[in-house]
Structures are given as C-alpha cells and as structure tokens.
C-alpha cells in the first residue's frame, strides 16, 4: 500500500521528466546520426559524418581549446576556492556561516549580470582602464575585453562560489581532532595539511573542480559575451548550429560529445571519491 501511494505521488513528476527531458534528449542524440537537410531541415538517412566532423581538425581544435580553457578555469577556481574555504573554516565558528553566505551570495545573482559586470570592468572605457589612466599607466594596458583571459576570468568569477561551497562542507565536517592527532604525533602544520587535511577533503574539491569544468566546457554565455564575436567554444558552436547555421545534426553531435565527456568525468570523480577515502566513513 505504501509503495502504491508512493508510485501515485511520483508518477506526474516522473512523467514530466520523461516527456520533457528524457525523450527530447534522446531525440537530440538521435539527430546526431542523421544528415542535414538541404534547407536546414533533417534528411532522415543514417550517417556517422556528423560525429566524424566533430573530430575534424577545425572543430576538434575548438573542442580541445574549450577543454583547455575549462581545465584552466577548473584549476584556478579549485585552488582559489579551496584556499577560501580553508580560510573560512579557520575563522571562529560563529563567523563561518556569515562568511560562507557572503561567499556564495554572488552565485545567486543573475549569471548574465555577473558576466556583464566584467564587461564594465574590462572594456576600453572600463573601470580598470580608468584606474590605470588615473595612475598614468594606461598606455601599458593591452586589450582586455574580448580575449581568452576575459573568458577565463568571467568563468572563474561565475563558478568560484560553487567551489568554495563544495570545499567548505568536507573541510568543516573534518573532525578537528584528526589534525590535532597529526600535530600530536609530530607532524608540522604543513605536513598535517598535506597528509591529513587535503587527502580527506579531496573528494569535495574534486566534485567542485569537475562541476566547474563541466559547466565551463559547454558554456555559451560567457564566451559569447566576453570572448567577442570570433571567439569559439563548444557551447557557442552548438548555439550557432541550432540558431544560425541551421545544421542541427552537427549541433546534436557536438552536444553528444559534450555529454559523453561530462558523464565520463562525473563517473571518474565518483569512482575516485569512493576509492580515495576507503568507502564509507563514520559520520
């Protein structure tokens, strides 16, 4: 009876997810195996050309470049975010929720607006140029907006709070006496960090880094706004296939590769997390 009630309660939501998530996703993945129609439609003949095209030097290069940028973003965000979370945890207990809240707060403001803030900072009449001019050093400044650096800065900015949050949880849950035990047994502060604190909180850091990578690699807004018109990443490429170039099957193939990379990373991260800490741990 309990299970029947449960099925009854779950049915509408699961049906919604099935109809508007599973089926459309399956459909778009299926599109990857068909030919592009003459006038932007779909020609229903099976082909692997689209997938092959993804790995063509031109598009493969964009794919690799996206991965490189996302990797850099994940690395920078992981280091900065872990340091920030560590700093928050080492403040007195009653301050921590406030600091954490402040660190995560920007995450809740509109993504477009946060990205736009960087345009304001970086553009040719932007604040940084103004500040440099005021200091009399504006001649030394290179172009900042519409560069890869701007895209990386924007992505790190967007996802740093997420990493802080992901790292804070395991760091604050780590029993204080483990670090104390290490000190007691003769470990210096750094040794204790390297051998106890870091390994035990690595899964949280990995979750943060993997998600930042996944969110960055397929990002469309940030490269479009901060990278300028010529800047291409997988996300902008997919966007272009669907909304301007009209090559849906190729766009679908790109999305498929994106999903595959993402799945692979998430599975790997789960696997590492489960092995790294010897499975279950005491609460």
């Amino acid at each position: 009876m309990r299970d029947r009630g449960s099925a009854f309660l779950m049915a509408p939501a699961l049906a919604w997810l099935a109809g508007l998530m599973v089926v459309p996703c399956a459909l778009v993945l299926a599109l990857a195996f068909f030919r592009r129609g003459l006038y932007g439609g779909i020609d229903w003949t099976f082909t692997l050309e689209n997938l092959a095209l993804v790995f063509d030097p031109l598009y493969g290069g964009i794919l690799l470049n996206s991965a490189r940028i996302a990797g850099l973003v994940a690395l920078i965000a992981a280091v900065a975010g872990y340091a920030a979370a560590f700093a928050i945890v080492s403040r007195p207990r009653h301050w921590q929720p406030v600091l954490l809240f402040l660190a995560v707060l920007p995450f809740w403001s509109n993504y477009l607006i946060r990205t736009y803030a960087w345009i304001v900072l970086l553009n040719r009449e932007g604040l940084i140029v103004q500040a440099a001019r005021w200091l009399g050093r504006d001649g030394a400044l290179p172009q900042m907006l519409y560069t890869e650096g701007a895209v990386i800065a924007g992505l790190v900015y967007a996802y740093l709070p997420f990493v802080i949050l992901a790292c804070y949880a395991p760091l604050s849950r780590l029993p204080r006496d483990l670090a104390e035990a290490s000190r007691d047994l003769g470990g210096s502060g750094f040794t204790t960090f390297r051998r106890i604190t870091l390994p035990l909180t690595l899964p949280g850091l990995a979750v943060g880094a993997v998600f930042v990578f996944v969110l960055s690699v397929g990002n469309f807004v940030t490269p479009a706004l901060l990278g300028g018109g010529q800047f291409q990443m997988v996300g902008t490429l997919v966007y272009a296939q669907f909304l301007t170039a009209g090559d849906w099957p190729f766009g679908a193939a790109l999305a498929m590769v994106l999903m595959a990379v993402m799945m692979l990373l998430l599975v790997a991260q789960t696997w590492v997390a489960e092995r790294g800490t010897g499975g279950r741990r005491d609460a």
């Binding site: 998530m21 778009v28 990002n219 469309f220």
Partner: peptide, 13 residues
C-alpha cells in the same frame, strides 16, 4: 545536464 543540451533538446523536440 548542461543548459545548452537541454535547450537544444527541447528546441528540436
């Protein structure tokens, strides 16, 4: 799921 993937999936659908 990346937004862009759900977005194009629903558009196609």
């Amino acid at each position: 799921i990346p937004d862009i993937v759900l977005a194009i999936a629903l558009l196609s659908f």
